[in-house]
Amino acid sequence: MLEVFTWLANWLVYELMGLDPTSKFGTSLHFFVEDTTKIFALLVVMIYVIALMRASLNLERVRHYIQQKPRLAGYGLGASFGAITPFCSCSSIPLFLGFTSAGIPLGITMAFLFTSPIINEVAIIMLWSLLGWEFTLVYIAIGMAVGIGGGMILDTLKGERWLKDFAAKAYQQAAETPQGDAPAPEVPILTFKDRHEFARDELKEIAGRIWKWVIIGVGLGAALHGFVPDGWFADNLGSGQWWNVPVAVFAGLPLYSNATGVIPVMESLILKGLPVGTTLAFCMSTVAASFPEFIMLKQVMQWRLLTTIFVILLANFMIVGWLINLLSPWLFSGFH
C-alpha cells in the first residue's frame, strides 16, 4: 500500500520535474518527497486513531494504577505508561511532583520520564514505515530498557536524598501515610463526539508541533542519502570499533531534537553503513538527553541528582550501543 508514495515521488521528481534518477540531487529529492508524503499521511491517520482510543486515559488514573502495584512491577509500568500517555514535556515538572507527592518512588517516576520522549506513537509510526518492524521492536525494547534500568539504578543509589527540600518532604509525607485505600479517580465517560473532539485537538496539537521536525529530519536524511557515498561511514569512521559508540553518544548530546527529527536521519545513517548500535546510541542521546529538559528538572532536584541521572543515561546509551552492535548479526539478519 505504501508503494503509492514511491510512485508519487517517481512521477513528481523524475517525470514532472524531469530530474535524472542517477543524479545526486535527483535521488535526494526523490527520497525527500517519498518520505515526507508517506510520513505525513501515516501520521495524520494514526495520531487521530490512537487519540480516539486513549481519550479516557489521564495522568490521575495512571498514577493511581501504578500506586496499587508492587514496586518491582512499577518500573515496567512507569516506562510503559511513559510510552503511551499523551504528555507534553512542559508538563514534566507538575507530573514529577504529582507522582512524588503521591509516594511513588523516584525511580518509577523517572522511568516514566526517560521513556516518554523515546517511545511515542509518532516515533513508532515513523520507524515502522522507514525501517521496518524488526527494527521498531528492537527500538521499543531498548527504550523500555533504558527507562526501567535507569529508574532501578536511581532507586538503588537512593536518589531521593538529593531532591529539593520541598519535594523530598512531600515524598516522605506520602510514604508515611498509607495510600493503598485512596479512592480511584473517576473514569471519564466519553461519547464518540467527545473522543472525536479530543482526537481532533490532539492531531492539531501534535501535527503543529512536529511538522517542521519531519521536514528538517527528512531533509537531512535526504541530503545524506544523496550526497554521502554508500559505505562512507565504514570507510572513514571504522566499522564497529568500541570507541565509535561513546563518540556517537557525545556527538548526539548538543543536538537537541525529538524522535521525529532524528528517525529519518537514522534511516540514512544505517543505509550508509553506520552500525545499528552506534546509530541507536546517537539517536537516544539526541532525543532523551536534552539540556533544556535537564534545566527544567533543576527546579525539583539538586545538582547532585541531576548529574547522577545524566551519567546513568549516558552509560545506558553506551551499553545499548555496544550490545546491539554485538548482537546485530543475529537481530537484523534480513536487514538492508
Binding site: 489521564n58 495522568l59 490521575e60 498514577r63 504528555f87 512542559c90 508538563s91 515538572i93 507538575p94 507530573l95 511532583l97 504529582g98 507522582f99 507527592s101 520541598f166 519535594a167 512531600a170 527546579q299 525539583v300
Partner: peptide, 25 residues
Amino acid sequence: PAAIMGYQVMSTPAVAIDGKLVHSG
C-alpha cells in the same frame, strides 16, 4: 513548582479561580 503541587495538578496549563482548581491539561 511548590505552589503548583499544592493544587495537585499534574497536567498544565491549569486554571484556578479564587484558590479553587477549575481546569487542567
